[in-house]
Design a protein around this nucleic acid. Sequence first.
DNA 1: TCCTTAATGTACGTACTAGTGAGTTAGCTG
DNA 2: CAGCTAACTCACTAGTACGTACATTAAGGA
Lengths: 216, 216
Amino acid sequence: MTSQPAAAERQRDAERTKAEILEVAQQEFARHGYAGARVDEIAARMRTTKRMIYYYFGSKERLYIAVLEKAYAEVRDMERTIEVEHLAPVEAIRTLAELTFDHHDLHREFIKLVAIENIHQAEHIRKSPALANLGTPVLDLIAAILDRGAAGVGFVTEADAIDVHMLISSFCFFRVANQHTFGALFGRDMTAPEHRDRLRAMVGDAIVAYLRGTGS
Amino acid sequence: MTSQPAAAERQRDAERTKAEILEVAQQEFARHGYAGARVDEIAARMRTTKRMIYYYFGSKERLYIAVLEKAYAEVRDMERTIEVEHLAPVEAIRTLAELTFDHHDLHREFIKLVAIENIHQAEHIRKSPALANLGTPVLDLIAAILDRGAAGVGFVTEADAIDVHMLISSFCFFRVANQHTFGALFGRDMTAPEHRDRLRAMVGDAIVAYLRGTGS
DNA sequence: TCCTTAATGTACGTACTAGTGAGTTAGCTG
DNA sequence: CAGCTAACTCACTAGTACGTACATTAAGGA
């Protein structure tokens, strides 16, 4: 009875507590925005107290930045697993577009955080050394595909990797980020299952058609 | 000296006061989000007092909804002036895409309000009878172009007007709405003058290429 | 010219909200 | 098992933010 099986049952566990704070904080910030989020509410939804939030993170702002850092790190790790080098340029860029689509479909909270951060003109990202000028592994993938495509199958050269990344991301991001106003105004939930496959194919078709250069 | 030239110099002018409140409030909400906006700050930046805000709008939330209604009305009025029926389908959709691009380029505050409203899951739009199921005149234009294009020059038929509107808007919206995080992470300000023309052409090229159907 | 009322200004109350001072305990280490 | 410190709890405060009670004034009509 006196033996404690593992660290899992420990009552005091700094890492666990910090992780729980970050998780609940991410939800709260994503749901209500930076100013709308309540430190007390975060505390109330945990087994810990508000005092611990300040003990570990110091301030509401530093907690928010920590949430951003964790969210970006997770997304970047996921992006690093993408494998499209073995595909021909057209199929490679289409696959990348569709994976980007899936990726946005899955990380709704992350997308909200990005939208919130843009409202604040990215001031918190700029305060984080871990985030400033981070980039994304996807950019290198796109650059390689564009090079191969330009050399082999006549991809257009007006756009560079950042432009193409933006064309793909914008569609995927918009569909999730603006689902509510779009739904309210047009009566269609773009994130509903019945639209998912069509829109997923659409972003692939659009980027392939664009790169093949029949738009001019 | 006792004559007062016109209403413009009247000290009491309900319409003028209301309009000024809405204008300053739009700035404040767009800059700080709904929760981050301060009623006292709005009042401080006007010639009126906070009391007037409550006299005319009743609450912070109803003021915010009024701001949304005004912003949406202005944008819709502007969209109604678009004239592309006289153009062939390809040129019509390209022109529409480029006008949409310009339109987003100009209405930065409106875009921020839309982003903010999405963070709140469009709850305020849904509370406004004037905004719920509003739609946009652009949808009818697109539908007409798609019909003509499908009949005449072989436009793809997988996407309807709403889908095409989304493809165009997403690119234009993202470029402005996400300029700050994008700039912080990739070191490129997509809204800078040196990128404007290229990106403007890009959205036109992409939508035309997609509709011509070389993406599959 | 007086009277009515819409429009406006002042000053304040209530509730909330980020942040903290100070004390307590679990669990490791020697 | 004694002692130390990181982890944790509790109670509290100072400041802020929305909203309002009440007094006042301008402007037009009778």
